[in-house]
């Protein structure tokens, strides 16, 4: 189980760095949703299914939708 935890942790750190450093805003949001999805895996490992189902529906679905809708309202991606 520790190997899976370390693997997920490394992927989470990579996606967090990419979410901050990405040039285009849309890439950043997609990477953020990937971070949420990986944290769902971590919650399942730590025996917390309630939190996992909430994070899956909120983090991977609604957070990305809200951010992309706000981005589209200010006129899309600018460099």
């Amino acid at each position: 189980m520790t190997i899976a935890t370390i693997f997920v942790g490394i992927l989470m750190i990579i996606s967090a760095i990419y979410a901050i450093e990405a040039k285009k805003m849309l890439d950043s949001f997609i990477s953020l949703s990937l971070l949420s999805l990986l944290s769902v895996f971590l919650f399942v490992i730590m025996k917390a299914p309630d939190v996992a189902i909430t994070e899956a529906s909120v983090g991977a679905g609604l957070t990305t939708a809200v951010l992309i809708l706000a981005l589209r309202r200010i006129g899309g991606d600018e460099e």
Binding site: I53, T54, A56, S57, V58, G61, L62, A65
Partner: peptide, 8 residues
């Protein structure tokens, strides 16, 4: 989570 699924 149920409310969030409905919002989705």
């Amino acid at each position: 989570p149920g409310g969030t699924i409905i919002a989705a």
